[in-house]
Simulated assay, not measured.
Amino acid sequence: MVSSSYSLNMHNILLPTCILILFALIKTSSGQLSANFYASSCPNFSSIISSAVNSAVSNEARMGASLLRLHFHDCFVNGCDASVLLDDTANFTGEKTAGPNNNSLRGFDVIDTIKTQLESSCPGVVSCADLLATAARDSVVALGGPSWNLNFGRRDSTTASLSAANNNIPAPTLNLSGLISSFSNQGFTTNEMVALSGSHTIGQARCTVFRNRLYNENNINSSFATSVRANCPSSGGDNNLSPLDAATPTSFDNAYFNNLLNQNGLLHSDQELFNGGSTDAQVRTYSSNPATFSTDFANGMIKMSNLNPLTGSSGQVRTNCRRTN
């Protein structure tokens, strides 16, 4: 029979050992992204990306929203792995022709330009996934929004998922429960969903995705509906564009939430955030507290940029973001 004192001593030895092993596993799984990942291998990567993003946004303010959206549509499909950038080939189907992306996502040429500059400076070093995460942040900053700290070391996928792109990216026709569920599937709380929806303070949408709201919904400001209908007829003009935030369309601010209070949400999913439901109070808070929105949005973006990244020996660092090596 083993003495109780021996058992106690063994327990005291084993417990710290188990804790150390657990910490080691946690560090292995989450510690491969770091702020200093490119400190020696490509110290200028951040300035290269920010300079190119500033130039692109200066040429066309809408590009800021497009680059932010690219990152979002990437991360919501099997994690932030740059799968959204892969072109279709004779033997490979990517995500670009998925319903939420086809004839809608843009900014690929800007990503190509930045990647070429990075390859010239640091060949084979900076991943397309890290490029997307950084370009999204720099785009928000370029339009007057908040910045946030990023960790790096994401690697690029060699695969893509058309079905996941069709199923995971929240549609502009979703009601509040659908939005909550879509974001919850990615690990986001309802509050984080509302904060991230504030990205619609910049960018534009095609008539085809909000026409039904203009002509068939009642929770819309009549003057607003009339003004938008001028560029979105009941039939035709599917690709005509309207700003998601008509008040300050090229400034990253909290005007989006003020629009919702006035029933000036362009998309059905936008107005669902302020339609007598559980998120009304948060919309009111953001409409009157821009600093709170900025903080919550930045924190939400940090969380999104860390969705299931490939690290270590997984994936690859593509030399061309459109195709695998």
Rank of each mutant, 00 (worst) to 15 (best):
234 S>N: 03
226 T>G: 15
321 C>A: 11
78 N>I: 02
129 A>C: 07
282 Q>A: 01
173 T>Q: 11
156 D>N: 13
103 N>Y: 12
207 C>K: 03
50 S>Q: 07
34 S>L: 01
38 Y>D: 13
103 N>S: 13
62 R>N: 14
247 A>V: 06
221 N>L: 05
31 G>V: 06
212 N>K: 10
220 I>Q: 04
306 N>H: 14
128 C>R: 00
66 S>E: 15
220 I>Y: 03
242 S>N: 06
150 L>D: 12
72 F>A: 01
245 D>T: 03
63 M>K: 07
182 S>F: 03
235 S>Y: 05
253 D>I: 00
185 N>Q: 11
323 R>I: 13
21 I>F: 06
110 V>R: 00
157 S>G: 12
271 Q>L: 02
249 P>G: 02
325 N>H: 01
192 E>T: 09
61 A>Y: 01
155 R>P: 04
148 W>V: 09
255 A>Q: 10
141 V>Q: 11
259 N>Q: 08
60 E>D: 15
301 M>N: 12
291 A>N: 14
254 N>V: 02
216 N>S: 13
134 T>R: 08
210 F>V: 03
247 A>F: 03
24 A>S: 15
44 N>I: 07
233 P>V: 01
89 T>R: 03
193 M>H: 12
157 S>K: 08
225 A>F: 07
170 P>W: 01
166 N>G: 10
296 D>Q: 14
16 P>Y: 00
137 R>I: 08
132 L>G: 09
242 S>W: 11
27 K>H: 09
207 C>F: 06
198 G>R: 11
94 G>I: 01
164 A>R: 14
166 N>P: 10
180 I>D: 11
229 R>H: 07
272 E>K: 04
301 M>C: 13
